[in-house]
Amino acid sequence: MSASGLPFDDIRDLVANMPKADRKAVHAKREREAQLTKPAGSLGRLEDLSEWVASWRGSATILRPLVAVFAGTHGVTKQNVSPYPSEVTQQMVSNFAAGGAAINQICATYDLGLKVFDLALEYPTGDISVEPAMDEKTCAATMAFGMEVLAGDPDLLCLGEMGIGNTTIGAALYCALFGGEPAEWVGPGTGLDEEGLRHKAEVVGRALETHKGHLRDPLEALRRLGGREIAAMAGAIVAARTQRVPVIIDGFVATAAAAVLYKMDPSSLDHCLFAHVSAEPGHMKALAAMDKVPLLALGMRLGEGTGAALAAGIVKAACQCHTGMATFEQAAVSTKAG
């Protein structure tokens, strides 16, 4: 798809016409699973993970896993919602390129590809507390840009982000999409104290008041309250579905991108796995609102796709167990009596 931009109506059409899981592949996977040298169900959720991959790829095989990290800057940082300055976003992108970040180490450990996307970092989005983050053209074009991540033909896509201020953006989106009070959704982000949390909730409240009456449509909520990295991740999720690529969603902010699509159509996330529950307190609330069960709970809240990359290592292991394990017949192992 072209990165020149898609109007929201075209995005809605893509979401409405997403392909379904491959039931024949699931059946074939289960038949082989029953013949492997282990008691039925003994690998627990690993068996579910390999089946999930097979249901979208046609087989439980991962050869080209990719972690995509989208970086954006936010006008709302003018409201002092983070203890770190906005410049840290660009500095961390440079750190990714130099191989010095946590995500670089995890990708190296599990042999995962890594691409980092700089989303016009010199041009922050609008300050959502007083104006829309983006106009429709910019939001749609950014979603289309996110779709381009599939150009390298990955067979597993892990989504992460970097952006000072984006936990404020995520909290505002969750509040708009799922309701509740701002204080229920905001968290410490990069290290706010109690007073900082109260201020952050107040900023989110002002943003919701500024845009009230315009937030029923999830895409309109995205363009008014979101960020470029969130829009790009939403586009990547849609493109992955059209190309039958399973997706692993990272933490609090990445899940906000998925939540936009969930509110459009809950089945739009059937190809997605939620990697972990973040230490950011609103994340579990968001997962519960979508009836999603995270794979891991490690007390992480770094972002960068780190949780998604860790989950990818487990998914790769699950698929290798399924494809590489011998059957009872191949190993000359007796099946249970009777």
Rank of each mutant, 00 (worst) to 15 (best):
I11C: 07
Y123R: 05
D155I: 15
S2C: 03
A25W: 01
S82R: 15
I164G: 07
I249P: 00
G235H: 00
L310Q: 13
T138L: 05
A312S: 10
M147V: 10
A151E: 02
A98F: 10
V260A: 06
C319I: 05
L49N: 00
G179A: 02
G226Y: 02
T168A: 01
A201M: 00
E304V: 12
E229H: 06
G324Q: 07
N80Q: 11
H283R: 14
S94D: 15
Y110C: 06
E209S: 02
T210A: 01
K137N: 09
G191A: 03
A68E: 12
A60D: 14
L296V: 04
A240K: 01
I11W: 02
C272F: 12
M162T: 03
Q243G: 04
A28V: 13
D13K: 05
K24A: 11
P19S: 07
M300T: 04
E136S: 12
A289M: 10
M264H: 15
T142H: 07
S278V: 13
A240G: 11
P132E: 14
E161L: 02
T327G: 15
V293N: 09
A97G: 15
E194P: 08
F8H: 02
D22A: 06
A151P: 12
T335S: 15
P294C: 12
T190P: 06
P85G: 09
S59L: 04
A21V: 10
P294N: 06
E181P: 08
T306R: 07
T335G: 04
V130M: 09
R198Q: 11
V76I: 02
Q90P: 11
R32C: 06
V245F: 13
